[in-house]
Structure formats: C-alpha cells, structure tokens
Write a protein that binds this DNA or RNA. Structure first.
Ligand SMILES: [Mn+2]
Ligand SMILES: [Mn+2]
Ligand SMILES: [Mn+2]
Ligand SMILES: [Mn+2]
Lengths: 217, 217
DNA sequence: AAGAATTTTTAGGATAGACTAAAAAATATC
DNA sequence: GATATTTTTTAGTCTATCCTAAAAATTCTT
C-alpha cells in the first residue's frame, strides 16, 4: 500500500463508493489528476481486489478496499483532533497537515495518540472517527436542507474543505451551535437561520447541504 | 526535495559529511541500498548542489545540503520528544516512527509542536535539536572512551540505534546518570563503571564509544 | 610492482506514478 | 437515427527510485 493508493481509495469512499459506482470523471476532479492516470490506478487497485470496476461506468470499493479507506480516515481524523486540540490549529487549518501525516503513521502510533487524546469520537468538523477495524459508528444527522421551516436544530458536522470552513468561521457557524430555521426558500433558495442568541444568518442552499444537523427538542 | 533525498542527506551528515568525505561504501551500509543506487543519488544531489563529490573518494555536504540535513534532524528529534514525553514511548521505540513523520511535517506544524513541547533542547537519547535555520547549538560532551581512569562523569547522549538503546536499557544506563570510570583496559578492552548508587557495570569499547559524557566535579 | 581484492561507476532493466494526444465507446442533441 | 459532445481507454513518454551484472578504477598484499 502506497500513499497514492490510500488517497485514491479514500477519494472513492468520499465520493460514495461504498454504495454507488464512482465515475472516473469524479475522481479526476477530486484528485486533480488526468483521466489516464485514473484508469491506470483503477487497473492497479482492481488487481489487488480493492475495487470492482464496470467499464465506462465507474468503480466501487470492495470490503477490503472499504476497510483500508476507513482506516486511513481514522488516522486522518485522529491527527485532526490532535492538531486542533493540542497544537491550537483552527478547524480550517487541520486538513492539509493531517492529509500528509495520515500516511506516515504506524498503527501503534495512532492507537497511542488516540489514547493520549482521550479516545475522541469526532474530528474538529464533526466527522465521526472510524473504528480500528475499519467499521464506522452509526450517526444520525441530516443535511440542513432536509429540515423544514420552524425546525430547531444543532450543528453536528460540516464539510471539511478549507474555504468552506473559512466561510463558516466568517458566518460564525460552529459545531454544537443551536438555531431555528426561520425561512427556507423554494427552488434551492437561501435559508435563514436564527441562533438562540438572537442573530440571524442567511446561507445559500449549496452551503446548507454541506452542513449536517440534529433536530433538538 | 523528496523523502529519499532528505534521508540521503541526513545519512551523509550522520557519517560525518560536514567535515570529511563519506564513501559510497558507508552509504551502502547505512541506507541498505546498492552501490549503483548510491552513485545515482550522488549524481542527483550533485546537480542540485547539495553535495560535493570527489570521484572514487566520496561526498561532502555543501552549506545548502547541511542546512537541509539539520532541518530534517530537527523534525526527527522534535517528533522523538513528542513520542517519548506525550505518547509514552520507550527511548528505543521512538526512532522508527520519527523517521517516517519527519518527512510528513510542514514547517508550521513543527514550530507549533515545538512550542507545545516547551521548546526542548535535547531528544530522548540526548541528541541536540538543531535550530530552525539549520544551525546546531554547541555541545561539549566527549565519547566515554576518551575518559581516563578515575574520571567522574554524567551520561549526556547515546547512539540512537534501536538495539543499542535496548542494550542500554538492560544495562540500566540512562541520560543524566552519574558514574566513576573504575577501569579501562588497553587495546580497546572493556570499561568498568561504578554508579553513584554503587552498582558496577562492564561495557565493551565499541559500546562505550557510542556513549557521550560530560565530566563532573 | 604484479596480482588480488575491493570499491565505484556504467549499462541495462524494472516498477510506480504521472503526463499528453489520439482512439474508442457511450451519451446527448437535434 | 445521425451527428456532436463527453468520457474513458490506449499508446507512447517521462521522472524517481530501485535493482543486477559487468567494467573500470583504486587499494591492498605479497
Ligand atoms: Mn480532513
Ligand atoms: Mn492523504
Ligand atoms: Mn532518532
Ligand atoms: Mn526518514
């Protein structure tokens, strides 16, 4: 297993490859490599039985591939907790350093680090940390866009793209914060949120889709 | 700069490449790669002006190469302190994980980690941590083999090979411990040490050469 | 100083990973 | 249903890193 293969499996997972086929096109966009390189990597992972492949359709993770992807995500997220809680990183800063460290961490190191951090359940943007064996704990949060007007909710998880996190920092949206959904416009229109402290925030539909919440009360 | 080149420069440094020429043979042994691969890497590093090369004699670090080697050693040793002090590693366990992490650490990460650790001066086996700019603080310790009979000394630094550290663990030799050199046999013979607590320890000449001490009193 | 032994270099390959350009297949449009 | 567009695959290169085997240079032995 090389860093490249690991990142590739992770990308497939993050594009939904546990349940659906993921197209080469998507991987080209996500990994910023050429289409030819995607085909090539597919061939390699296929030979190792980490993915299944339907020509001209896309790839899906096998059990084995899924386990490796989740173990990498576990490493990534444990590092993110460390960077955030011990080294004082902002939540938008953790991702890129964790993306390198995840490939340079022995299993033993990660288990010791996990204990040092108090066996956290979530990373700094609310992503659940997979178990050591590559399985994932159940979570029960829904995209903000699925809420109906008047709903009370708490922020549980947000997408981990650096610019998006910066945007949320600017909008003062953070994990655990509670809001009421005052208004949601049709045709993928903007959402108006009202915090318990009273201030109102308006965000677009696309951004709201990247925010997972849990209903309260 | 790639992990391989970094490790290569570090190996040259550790073989004395700051002051003397280091032979290909030495690098073959240290890095466990073929002689052909050493020649090849030399050519690459030469083109980047990180080393100077005297054909059939060996290589030395340039200013630039030395700076990179020291910055890598800084990363390595700061990680070793972390593994030892925060994650409870024994001093013989830290090396291999640090050897991977050193290549996956941004400068920012290392500076934050350094502050988190309280800006340590030495790594777990007494190696001095180079400065951020790639320079090295002065130290003033000598190989145990240079001491004369009757000398009182304190253990300051030991070689960082895993088996050697295990051996020292077994011999109950650790940093800061004070001894008297009771006897030193000629012709590279064994040394007899007496700890302040009274127990005597006999070690061979080769091992003693890997232990740096500071005279006390 | 000649021959033996050692060390370094050269030559020729292999593999992983990434690229561009062109061909082939699938999908969308009219 | 024919044509145009998009996506995927194939073909041909490139770089980094590693190897083995053979040649060349140096050093050691007698
Ligand atoms: Mn992340
Ligand atoms: Mn990564
Ligand atoms: Mn070390
Ligand atoms: Mn290393």
């Amino acid at each position: 297993m090389t860093p490249n293969k690991e990142d590739f499996l992770k990308a497939i997972y993050e594009l939904g490859g546990q349940n659906q086929v993921v197209t080469n096109k998507d991987l080209v966009r996500t990994l910023s490599i050429s289409a030819a390189s995607v085909t090539e990597m597919n061939t390699r992972l296929l030979k190792e039985e980490l993915i299944t492949h339907l020509p001209y359709q896309g790839v899906m993770l096998t059990e084995k591939g899924l386990r490796i992807a989740n173990q990498l995500i576990r490493k990534h997220r444990i590092w993110e907790v460390f960077l955030s809680e011990k080294l004082g990183y902002e939540w938008n800063e953790v991702h890129s350093d964790a993306d390198l460290l995840e490939h340079a961490s022995s299993d033993l190191l990660i288990e010791r680090l996990n204990i040092f951090l108090g066996e956290p359940t979530f990373d700094p943007h609310g992503g659940v940390i997979p178990n050591k064996d590559g399985s994932t704990p159940e979570i029960h949060s829904t995209p903000l866009t699925d809420c109906s007007q008047g709903a009370h909710f708490k922020i549980k998880e947000v997408d981990d793209q650096e610019e998006f996190l910066e945007y949320l920092l600017y909008k003062k949206v953070h994990l655990g914060k509670e809001y009421t959904l005052v208004d949601i416009e049709p045709y993928d229109g903007p959402l108006t949120l009202k915090a318990t402290t009273g201030e109102e925030t308006i965000i677009g539909h696309k951004a709201a889709f990247k925010i997972l919440v849990e209903l309260t009360e």
